[in-house]
């Protein structure tokens, strides 16, 4: 249908190359930097060619950094562990809470159902500090300050709306007759929910779970306010790391690479569902 001239094809090629360069170069550069010693990093002009070293990663993993001034302790692996813990437990909890609720909103029209669903959605758009600042005072008062439980609770603000609204769409797509057929065949409501509704909504549940994991992992401000050093995830930890280690640029780059790799890998894995997830189910990819 479309006839493209050679000239136009060249222009398109150049534009796509430029777009790729702009969006991928930073990731590539940091990746390369993470394999350089400080001397290599500071070389002018910067070069794409160098003899790679894994020293940055080994010192991050062992938590010991040998410098001229002596040995320095690095807590970065602890941050990475915190990220894994906070994100996965938050998503697991959000699935346990959110999937039944999504089913209720999809299947039953009960009084206030839409209001409740939209209230949950509106959490996604309120300024997080508005909730976090007073919450930090409350958490101090009831002892949830700087605890994993407190953080995981607050992370529900990220994960729950996402799971609720994406999974709800998948439940709504299941014909009610399919569930009725199973119940009439003699199965209880709970059996129908676990053996029919959940398996049929599984792609949506998986997509929502993956996305929620990515968003929890990438969150910065919740932990910045509610967590102290030993509970901080990588997003906050990396910032503290920069302040603490100052000029250890190679390690900073390695820390960033370790911090973004899980989400980038998951994103590629879940890319089929990203459009739907990012738009909270408004646009199908």
């Amino acid at each position: 249908m479309e006839h493209t001239s050679p000239f136009e094809r060249i222009i398109r090629g150049v534009l796509i190359a430029a777009v790729l360069l702009f969006f991928l170069f930073p990731i590539l550069w940091i990746f390369l930097m993470s394999f350089q010693t400080n001397e290599q990093v500071l070389r002018i002009p910067p070069s794409l060619f160098f003899s790679p070293t894994t020293i940055n990663y080994t010192s991050l993993v062992t938590g010991k950094l040998q410098t001229a001034a002596g040995s320095l302790d690095l807590a970065f692996m602890r941050n990475l562990g915190n990220s894994v813990l906070l994100s996965s437990v938050s998503v697991a909890l959000a699935l346990v809470l959110g999937v039944p609720a999504a089913y209720a909103f999809a299947r039953f029209k009960f009084p206030l159902s839409e209001d409740i669903a939209f209230t949950l959605l509106s959490f996604r758009f309120a300024p997080p500090l508005l909730v976090l600042l007073p919450l930090s005072l409350y958490f101090q008062a009831i002892g949830l300050d700087d605890t994993y439980i407190g953080l995981i609770w607050v992370y529900q603000l990220i994960a729950l709306p996402l799971i609720l609204w994406i999974v709800r769409g998948y439940f709504e797509d299941i014909s009610p007759d399919i569930e009725y057929a199973y119940r009439i065949a003699g199965h209880s409501w709970l059996q129908t929910f676990t053996r029919i509704a959940i398996p049929l909504a599984r792609p949506g549940i998986a997509a929502a779970g993956l996305l929620a994991f990515i968003f929890c992992w990438n969150n910065f401000v919740f932990a910045l306010i509610l967590a102290s050093a030993d509970k901080q995830p990588v997003t906050v930890g990396a910032l503290a790391f920069v302040t603490a280690s100052g000029i250890q640029y190679g390690q900073i780059a390695a820390a960033i690479v370790l911090s973004v790799t899980p989400t980038l890998a998951l994103a590629l894995f879940a890319q089929r569902y990203l459009v739907e997830g990012l738009s909270l189910g408004a646009v199908k990819g």
């Binding site: 777009v19 930073p26 930097m33």
Partner: peptide
């Protein structure tokens, strides 16, 4: 591939650009 920046935590992206 263009999804990768979007999936990078903004706080970490800020650090990346700070280094660059």
């Amino acid at each position: 591939l263009l999804l990768l920046p979007l999936m990078t935590a903004p706080a970490l992206a800020a650090l990346m650009w700070k280094l660059m």
